[in-house]
Structures are given as structure tokens and as C-alpha cells.
């Protein structure tokens, strides 16, 4: 346990020094302020919906940037290198401990950047339009951190299974592209062709095959403007058997998308010749 924490702290310190992580945090703060300004253009809605509309605007940006940051951070830290890694791996520390420790440190760094960036932006909104919707915005930030955790896990799995660092970075970039753009693009194209209830069910089922979709829907439903998914959102909740079941299904899916790739990474790392 002590080793795990030591490695996590080491990782956090290294990641926090990265310029681009700092830039990312600043970018999140700026984007929140900009999105809040854009949402506030409809001034009559600003008081009631300031946070919700800001969140709606931020969702696609978060879905692009957070996985990208996680993939880059995860691969560059978890990929086996010829430099310091052999030194670390001969220490009396389990490989899984190294893996989880690094994952924790990365999550602390990226999650911290997300929380700080959005926190600063959120403080600006709260100070100008009041704290209504602040809890929902906090949930949105938490879901962003969960998204980071999932893609850090995916990055770890890719890094542990790929042969070289370059292969890992390439494969992880494809994973990002697949989940962020390609998967939904295919699902949407399919949705245009498959109408009717089968098409609807297939589309609903497809959500669980992509963690960014689970996160996005949770973000919209928890922190978006009320009833934002309309009839489709109602049908989605019914499909999952009610509100509580829907929340449970989403939470389970997110936990699985975090744990399973980490498990795969641990297993692959154990067999690996470093």
C-alpha cells in the first residue's frame, strides 16, 4: 500500500509539472467562462439555466479533450521504456502496484486539472448568476473525472499490450478516435437506416458499448437543461426499467469500463518481459 501511494505521488508530481496539463486546466477555465458568456447571450435564461446551458455547451468539448488528455498522459507514462523502467521494475514492488500507482497518480493529476479548471470557471458563473445549479455542475465535473479515469485505464491496457511505445501511442490514438468519433458516427448512420422499435433498442443498447456515450447521457440528464433528451430520454429510461435502474446501469457500465481495461493491463504486464 505504501509503495502504491509512493508511486502515485511520484507520478502525480511528474504529471503536474507537464506544461500541457497546466495549459489544459487553464483552457477548461477559459472555456467555461466563454461558454457561460455564450449561454448568457440569452439573458432571460441566464439566471435559471446559466449552469445547465454552460454545461450543454461544454459537453462535446469535454468529450473530445478529456479522453485525448487521458490517452496521451496514460500511454506516455504506462508504456514500457528502456530508460528508468527496468530500474523501477527490479525493485521489490509488484507490477500491478506500479500499474495502479501510476494510474492513480495520473488520475490525480488530470482529475485535479479538470476540477481546478472547471472549478474556477464555475466560480465565475456562480459569482455572476448565483449558485443555482452548482450541484449539477459539480456532478458534470465529477463525470468528466470519471471519463478521464476510463481513458487512463484504456491507455494502460493499450500500453501494457502494445510492443513498443510508438505502437502504443498509435493504437491509443485510434482508441480515442474510435470511441469519440467513429463509434457514434456509425451508430448514428445506422439509426438513420434502422427505424422502428428494433432500431431504437439497438441504438439504446449501443450506448453501453461506448463509455463516452454513457458519460455524455449522464452529463446531459444530470446537469443539462431539464428533460433535454425529451421523448428519447424518456424512452431510454423506460428501456432500462426506470430512473433508479438507469442510474445503476450507468454506474455499473462506468465501473466496468474503468476496471476491466485496468485488469487487462495488469494481466498483460504480469506476463510481460520488461
Amino acid at each position: 500500500m505504501r509503495n502504491l501511494i509512493a508511486i502515485a505521488r511520484l507520478e502525480l508530481r511528474a504529471a503536474a509539472r507537464l506544461k500541457w496539463i497546466q495549459v489544459l486546466a487553464a483552457a477548461f477555465a477559459l472555456m467555461t467562462a466563454a461558454a457561460a458568456y455564450a449561454a448568457g447571450a440569452a439573458t432571460e435564461l441566464y439566471g435559471a439555466d446559466g449552469f445547465a446551458r454552460t454545461t450543454m455547451t461544454l459537453v462535446p468539448v469535454v468529450l473530445v479533450l478529456v479522453p485525448l488528455g487521458a490517452i496521451v498522459l496514460g500511454v506516455s507514462s504506462q508504456a514500457i521504456e528502456t530508460g528508468s523502467d527496468p530500474f523501477l521494475f527490479v525493485q521489490p514492488v509488484g507490477r500491478a502496484t506500479i500499474l495502479f500507482g501510476r494510474w492513480l497518480g495520473e488520475l490525480a493529476a488530470l482529475g485535479g486539472a479538470i476540477a481546478l479548471g472547471f472549478g474556477a470557471g464555475g466560480a465565475i458563473i456562480a459569482s455572476s448568476s448565483g449558485p443555482d445549479g452548482l450541484t449539477a455542475f459539480a456532478a458534470f465535473v465529477a463525470l468528466s473525472v470519471a471519463l478521464a479515469a476510463i481513458f487512463l485505464s484504456l491507455a494502460a491496457a493499450v500500453a501494457a499490450t502494445a510492443g513498443t511505445r510508438t505502437t502504443a501511442l498509435g493504437a491509443a490514438t485510434f482508441v480515442w478516435f474510435f470511441f469519440v468519433l467513429l463509434y457514434d458516427g456509425l451508430a448514428l448512420s445506422l439509426a438513420g437506416q434502422l427505424t422502428g422499435s428494433t432500431g431504437g433498442r439497438l441504438l439504446f443498447g449501443s450506448v453501453f458499448g461506448n463509455p463516452t456515450d454513457v458519460i455524455r447521457i449522464a452529463m446531459l440528464q444530470v446537469a443539462g437543461t431539464s428533460n433535454v433528451l425529451g421523448a428519447a430520454g424518456e424512452a431510454w429510461t423506460r428501456f432500462l426499467g426506470g430512473e433508479r435502474q438507469a442510474a445503476a446501469a450507468a454506474a455499473t457500465a462506468l465501473a466496468a469500463w474503468t476496471a476491466v481495461p485496468l485488469g487487462i493491463a495488469a494481466a498483460a504486464l504480469k506476463r510481460r518481459d520488461v
Binding site: M56, V59, P60, L63, V64, V180, L181, L182, Y183, D184, G185, A187, L188, A191, L203, F204, V207, T212, D213, R216, I217, L220, V228, L229, G230, A231, A232, G233, W236
Partner: peptide, 8 residues
Amino acid sequence: RLFLQSPA
């Protein structure tokens, strides 16, 4: 509609 605000 479930894919509202998706980058795709």
C-alpha cells in the same frame, strides 16, 4: 436524439 451533443 440520445446522441445530442456528441462530437460525432
